[in-house]
């Protein structure tokens, strides 16, 4: 498996043959190849990240003054019900979107991995269509389908006698709606990642299991799932980092109150809260403090991932 974990990042040293003859120009050349990335990353990635910690210590108005206030932003943040509401919403939407997405992708990858499947290319390509559809377009079409009065889904529910559900105005409804959009967008992509991993499993293992009388379900449980473990960890991490950044869906589904995603902030995520404070209320310092909180969450997730993947590697040893 190719991981992005630091342990695997050490490189094989290429041959140094001929290097004594290289001039200064050629010896400095490698840095020129990596310079554009590091320059852009420094200016638009690293400096803003560090600057976030700095701005968070100020009462910072973009057009007015900025006053150093120490950790006041954080004290206020931790006492702010809106912050904890956003944390709750973010975690709830993340769970509702990640778990079904990974389960669906597992099953579909297993089905697509069948040796004699016809139309394999058609199935794979179709599942990537949501990925190329923009989040904005997705949010608009799903909000319409889930609309209380004119939505397709509520019409179908009405046929079986279930009264109209106001998905957008209720907490669970709005979380479910956003989760459905995230799942729709990503399950095909995840399926392809799982499928690629499954195809590396020798066919002979499946054949042997088949000969021994193991059906499709047992093969799925005892061959597919264990061999997918590393990529499952990877997708959990990427979907978590993605889940912490959900912004466009909540902004677009609630037309009347976009910045709070509803009258009672029922679907305001952390990133949307950051945006509301920073660019809606122009409180850059407070917004930056929310950014720091997001950073802490990301580091916690990354640490968890590291512990999880070392545990898996330890289990793999005979």
């Amino acid at each position: 498996m190719t991981t992005i974990s630091p342990a695997r990042s050490s490189l094989p040293a290429p041959s140094r043959a001929g290097s004594p003859r290289l001039g200064l120009r050629e010896r400095l050349a490698p840095y020129a190849y990596i310079a554009p990335f590091f320059l852009i990353f420094a200016v638009f990635g690293l400096v803003p990240l560090l600057f976030t910690f700095y701005v968070a210590l100020f009462d910072w108005n973009p057009i007015g003054d900025h006053v150093f206030i120490g950790f006041d932003n954080f004290t206020r943040l931790f006492a702010d019900g809106r912050f904890w509401n956003a944390v709750r919403n973010t975690i709830s939407i993340w769970l509702l979107s990640t778990v079904p997405q990974l389960l669906v992708a597992l099953v579909l990858a297993h089905l697509l991995n069948h040796a004699r499947l016809r139309l394999a290319v058609f199935f794979r390509m179709s599942m990537l269509v949501p990925y190329i559809t923009s989040v904005a377009a997705t949010a608009i079409v799903f909000a319409q389908m889930f609309d209380r009065d004119y939505g397709l889904l509520n019409w179908l529910l009405g046929l079986v006698g279930i009264g109209p559900i106001d998905f957008i105005q209720s907490m669970w409804g709005s979380h479910a709606l956003i989760a459905v959009m995230v799942v729709w967008r990503w399950f095909g992509y995840t399926t392809l990642l799982y499928l690629a991993s499954l195809q590396a499993v020798p066919r002979a293992i499946y054949e042997a299991a088949s000969v021994d009388g193991a059906g499709s379900w047992k093969q799925f449980l005892h061959i597919s799932i264990p061999s997918l473990r590393p990529v499952i960890v990877f997708t959990i991490v990427t979907s978590t980092i993605g889940g912490l950044q959900i912004f466009t869906e909540p902004l677009l589904i609630s037309r009347a109150t976009p910045l709070t995603c509803g009258a009672v902030r029922q679907c305001q995520t952390l990133t949307l809260f950051l945006f509301e404070q920073g660019f809606g209320q122009f409180r850059f310092g407070y917004g930056a403090a929310i950014g720091v909180a997001l950073f802490v969450l990301v580091v916690a997730v990354a640490t968890l991932n590291y512990l999880l993947s070392t545990k898996i590697r330890a289990e793999k040893k005979p």
Binding site: S9, F41, V47, T52, I241
Partner: peptide, 20 residues
Amino acid sequence: VVVLTMTVPTQLSVIPQYMI
């Protein structure tokens, strides 16, 4: 460093990014 930058979401620093 390149590998590590992959794990940090840039969205959390949009405010300083905008200032720059």
